[in-house]
């Protein structure tokens, strides 16, 4: 890996570690290997969103041409969000693509992702099904997103969320994979019959 990229990442790593946001445990980065080519990011779900209280892990890969090209980032924690693929974790965010500038840093990226969790852009979707639900049935989208955060991101649960758990459990008892059942229910407005049909087909 090019020296420039390594030197930059080393400095950035220190910057994030000692930053104010890190002190509040809102964002974090960790090294995965000694070559500084792969890092693990973590962002806290922002308050007053369905992701509140959740912890979202990110895979961060540093290209050799960093910082002239953006880091490759995707969600490792499964998430229900219009701009993030619920299957692959791929992210649709301008600064990770053609609006990246070399003056930006990992800190910029993590804070921008946190902002994306607070304000989705359904007209520029990564996940068409989630975006459609977000636009057409915001309330159900919110409940679904919260459920995913509870299931995968350790967000706290409350009694009123039991309905979705029961439905997933019912399908799981029928022998379906828990995650597949959850995905099918999420995509079919939590309608048991249609979700089951989808799982069988």
């Amino acid at each position: 890996m090019a020296n420039i990229a390594v030197a930059r990442i080393k400095r950035e790593f220190r910057e994030v570690v000692k930053s104010e946001e890190a002190a509040k445990c809102n964002i974090r980065v960790e090294l995965i290997d000694d070559n500084f080519t792969e890092l693990r990011g973590e962002i806290a779900g922002p308050p007053e969103t369905p992701y509140e209280g959740g912890k979202f892990l990110l895979e961060i890969k540093i290209p050799e041409t960093y910082p002239f090209n953006p880091p490759k980032v995707k969600f490792m924690t499964k998430i229900w969000h219009p701009n993030i693929s619920s299957v692959t974790g791929a992210i649709c965010l301008d600064i990770l693509k053609d609006q990246w500038a070399a003056a930006m840093t990992l800190r910029t990226v993590l804070l921008s992702l946190q902002a994306l969790l607070s304000a989705a852009e359904p007209d520029d979707p990564q996940d068409a099904v989630v975006a459609k639900q977000y636009k057409e049935n915001r309330h159900l989208w919110e409940k679904t997103a919260r459920h995913w955060a509870q299931e995968y991101a350790e967000a706290p649960k409350s009694k009123k969320d039991d309905e979705f758990y029961d439905k997933v459990s019912q399908l799981a008892e029928m022998g379906f994979d828990r995650h597949k059942a959850l995905t099918a229910l999420s995509a079919h407005e939590w309608n048991m019959e249609r979700a089951t049909q989808d799982l069988i087909s």
Binding site: S85, S86, V87, T88, A90, C92, P125, Q126, D127, A128, V129, V130, A131, K132, T183, S186, A187
Partner: peptide, 13 residues
């Protein structure tokens, strides 16, 4: 817009 039968996680293309 998404097709009625599209699967979650797919982009539009």
């Amino acid at each position: 817009m998404a097709e009625a039968n599209s699967k979650p996680g797919e982009s539009l293309d």
